[in-house]
């Protein structure tokens, strides 16, 4: 049932993705709405990075590394499913090994012995799967709490929650523990990069445009899409040609 719903949602959302005009590097038809969400997100994260005396994250490194490792391991069945959907069987196999090793020998993923063995995570999510399948990026979105995204990535996020196979392996009680751990891991990750995000938001003349540009460039890089725009300041001295 959930799978069928996810499938319908995928088809509907991909069909609804608004297509960017040719050559446009930023497609943002919802800019007005996105900007008001951005102001909301900015107020919410107002504390981040504004602490003058603060150097480095608030959560101790040792604890935050364990939280992040646990959250990553809990997310692994979903990642493996996406590796498979993308036809990346090498990634799926390697991540399955990772998941088994960290679950058995790493105290359910609190530790990451697989990484020490050189088995790095091969990241995948449903937004990426949609990209591999040829779905267009769609319009840029800034989501409440979640921050920068695109129509394709937002559809991917929802589908990832619906098709997460973790529930097949664990009891309901364990699923609660996994979910709490996952949220804690996410907070720890934000804490690690909080200064950077805070600096960009607080110090930029147009933090909305900066966040949008940084997100789109980084996401396209992750997806292996060649940069639409390169900078050659010797051929194009003023960047206006």
């Amino acid at each position: 049932m959930k799978i069928a719903f996810a499938l319908c949602l995928t088809l509907a959302s991909v069909a609804a993705c608004s297509t960017a005009p040719d050559g446009a590097t930023v497609h943002d038809p919802y800019e007005t709405r996105n900007r008001s969400v951005h102001e909301f997100n900015k107020r919410l994260t107002g504390g981040l990075g504004s602490d003058e005396d603060r150097s480095g994250p608030r959560i101790p490194q040792d604890i935050s590394a364990r939280l992040i490792d646990f959250a990553d391991n809990v997310a692994m069945p979903g990642v493996i499913l996406n590796n498979t959907l993308q036809g990346d069987f090498v990634g799926a196999t390697s991540n399955t090994m990772r998941f088994l090793i960290n679950t058995v020998f790493g105290a359910f993923g609190v530790f990451d012995p697989a990484d020490i063995m050189g088995l790095e995570e091969i990241d995948a999510d449903f937004g990426q799967t949609l990209s591999v399948w040829g779905a267009p990026e769609g319009a840029y979105l800034e989501l409440p709490l979640l921050g920068p995204s695109t129509e394709r990535d937002f559809a991917g996020d929802i589908v990832d929650v619906l098709i997460d196979p973790l529930g097949l392996f664990v009891t309901d009680d364990q699923l609660v523990v996994a979910s709490v751990g996952s949220i804690a891991g996410r907070i720890a990750k934000i804490d690690q990069v909080g200064d950077t995000i805070g600096d960009v938001l607080n110090e930029s003349a147009d933090s909305y445009a900066q966040a949008r540009l940084i997100y789109l460039q980084n996401r396209r890089y992750e997806l292996g899409i060649e940069a639409a725009e390169v900078a050659d300041p010797y051929a194009d001295l003023y960047g206006d040609q």
């Binding site: 003349a205 147009d206 460039q217 890089y221 725009e229 900078a231 010797y234």
Partner: peptide, 25 residues
């Protein structure tokens, strides 16, 4: 060096946008 790119984020393009926004302000 005239540019660096960290995880796909191009310094020249990003700073051009930021300087442009400062100039608008």
């Amino acid at each position: 060096f005239f540019n660096f790119i960290i995880e796909g984020v191009n310094m020249l393009l990003t700073e051009r946008a930021e300087i442009g926004a400062l100039l608008d302000r």
